[in-house]
Design a protein around this nucleic acid. Structure first.
Length: 549
RNA sequence: UGGGAGAUCGGCUAAUGGUAGGCCGGCGGGCUCUGGACCCGCUAGUGGGGGUUCGAAUCCCUCUCUCCCAGCCA
């Protein structure tokens, strides 16, 4: 099965390949290195790299770094790391800023052909005239004057923002993008990759088609908000093909697809920055965030993210996907690979009145339906911890757990029944219970079968764990609801519990992902967990079949 | 206002003139030493109005709604 779901883009690719339009497919993932990648970017990454893999082509990772004021090497490195973590190997790692010389020579050609001019208008004046559809008074400068002015711009003779190079297209075109778009601006600022060589920087609309064309990209895939920019993309390529060392054909074409958006979270750079810098989360890798580093730290596997992209499809329809689907895909991914172990989040002590000593039981890691082999020794003893929520003094209808007069089975162990409840200040402190003899791997001889099965650990053997339970970042599907997204933050997006886990996990590789039975999928926090001081992140809870009335 | 795009079950997405299907969710049942997984069933849709056609989600006209553009950001 392919990485990319069948869609209008795979149709285009298949058609182009069938018709022999290109010798081979070449795509690119072109982020600006001005922030961290999030799950929204995953759609673009999987699309571009996946297409290359599915159709025997290649895919470049290219930093679209044409704005020195926003970009950092730190971001570029993080982006590459995240792309590789997602499971993709760029055929090349490239920088748009390495093409600045070629782009400059192309601009010279445009000027010489009377297709570009230097404009002295202020930003406000230009905006005004553009809105009115009127030409700039500098539009008809001579080629010689434009050449001289542009050269002086490059030499750094003019201050930041004082002049621009514009394409001479049509001042009153109905598509505003075509109203003589700016090609170059002056910015006196060092560039993280190009250094101090340049003080003029190309604009996206001019740079992007050239980057694609230079690299031999065949299909230039971007999101819907660039639809209007396609006309400029085509103008640049049509006016420069066969010049400055650029080929005549074949040329790249731009196709747009819808962004990936999710409920109960935010994906805009601006809002993510406010969450991080405002201290609402602990950093860019805080597992509450939708960034790829956060999901990685939380324990989500790259396989799940790729599958999520595949399952949600590629379309031209703006859509917000329900978080429930993402969570389900994460569970689907973990279910067949996560060994089952027992742990308790909120311990309630249980003392068995008719059991002494200890024994080590053999407990299989996998339920029958997974079909995998393997087991671990599980210690059982007189004092146990069970989940506080697995006991009720006044159980509601349909209760399958421990209650006065109601037996339960301890998973992989014995059936127990309640004898006494020790309360202190209105709180249940301790349970005294009786183990029903002969119930290891068998039903009680008296024929009274337990209604349910609960998880537990042996108090003496269990390892203490700090559990970090991650929930949705926002209370509302749309965090924007009501105006201020910060007001909709979920105060319980992170809950910390001091609990226990069975001792076998100490023997496992620290990156093991577990299913704590009846609780959810967990793994050790790669940042804070230590052998003697376990910290476990809940990746995603299990589906809860029981709903109290 | 001009220009560009998009509307299919509650959500996402198929059907490319020929039985409106799948997944997520929700509800109910089966099975189970996980109230998980798995299995079964139910729920529920072509934005409105006209037209073409034997036949329309699909083609045409029209209306409505939503998104994008009018940075020297990408």
């Amino acid at each position: 099965m392919g990485l990319v779901p069948p869609c209008f883009i795979t149709e285009i690719v298949e058609r182009d390949l069938r018709e022999g339009k290109y010798p081979r497919l070449l795509t690119r993932f072109p982020p600006e290195p001005n922030g961290y990648l999030h799950i929204g970017h995953a759609r673009s990454i999987v699309l571009n790299f996946g297409l290359a893999l599915d159709y025997g082509g290649e895919c470049n990772l290219r930093y679209d770094d044409t704005n020195p004021e926003t970009e950092k090497e730190e971001y570029a490195r993080a982006i590459e790391e995240d792309v590789r973590w997602l499971g993709f190997t760029p055929d090349r790692v490239l920088y748009a800023s390495d093409y600045f010389e070629t782009m400059y020579r192309c601009a010279l050609v445009l000027i010489q052909e009377g297709k570009a001019y230097v404009d002295d208008l202020s930003e406000e004046e230009m905006s005004e005239l553009r809105a009115q559809g009127k030409p700039s008074p500098y539009r008809d400068r001579s080629v010689e004057e434009n050449l001289e002015l542009f050269e002086r711009m490059r030499q750094g003779e003019f201050p930041t923002g004082s002049r621009v190079l514009r394409a001479k297209i049509q001042p009153d075109h109905p598509n505003f993008k075509l109203r003589d778009p700016v090609l170059y601006r002056i910015v006196h600022a060092p560039h993280y990759h190009a250094g101090n060589r340049w003080v003029i920087y190309p604009m996206y609309d001019y740079a992007h088609p050239l980057e694609d064309f230079i690299e031999g990209v065949t299909h230039s895939l971007c999101t819907l908000e660039f639809e209007n920019n396609r006309a400029v993309y085509d103008w640049v390529i049509e006016n420069l093909k066969g010049k400055c060392g650029l080929p005549l054909a074949p040329r790249p074409y731009q196709y747009e697809f819808a962004r990936l958006d999710l409920t109960y979270t935010v994906l805009s750079k601006r809002k993510l920055i406010r969450l991080v810098e405002g201290g609402y989360v602990s950093g860019w890798d805080d597992p509450r965030l939708p960034t790829l580093r956060a999901l990685r730290r939380r324990g989500v596997r790259p396989e799940a993210i790729r599958e999520f992209v595949r399952r949600t499809g590629i379309s031209r329809h703006e859509a917000r996907i329900e978080m429930e689907l993402f969570e389900e895909v994460v569970r689907d991914d973990l279910n067949p690979i996560a060994p089952r172990v027992l742990g308790v989040l909120e311990p309630l002590r249980v003392v068995l009145t008719n059991y002494q000593g200890e024994e080590w039981l053999e407990a299989p890691y996998w339920p029958r339906d997974i079909g995998k082999e393997g087991a671990r020794p599980l210690p059982f003893s007189q004092e146990l911890y069970i989940e506080r929520s697995d006991f009720s003094l006044n159980p509601p209808k349909g209760w399958k757990r421990l209650a006065p007069g109601q037996r339960v089975r301890l998973r992989h162990a014995y059936v127990i029944e309640l004898e006494d409840v020790v309360e202190e200040g209105g709180e249940v402190k301790l349970l005294k219970a009786r183990m029903v003899p002969g119930t290891l791997g068998a039903n009680p001889e008296d024929g009274i079968k337990p209604k349910g099965v609960i998880h537990w650990v042996s108090a003496r053997h269990a390892l203490p764990v700090e559990y970090r339970l991650y929930n949705r970042l926002f209370l509302t599907q749309d965090p924007e609801e009501g105006g201020d997204f910060l007001k909709n933050l979920n105060p319980l997006a992170l809950e910390v519990k001091k609990g226990f886990v069975e001792p076998s996990v100490a023997q496992d590789p620290p990156e093991t992902r577990y299913q704590l039975e009846r609780l959810g999928y967990f793994w050790q926090d790669p940042g804070d967990s230590r052998p003697g001081r376990l910290v476990m992140n809940r990746i995603v809870p299990l589906k809860e079949g029981y709903r109290p009335q």
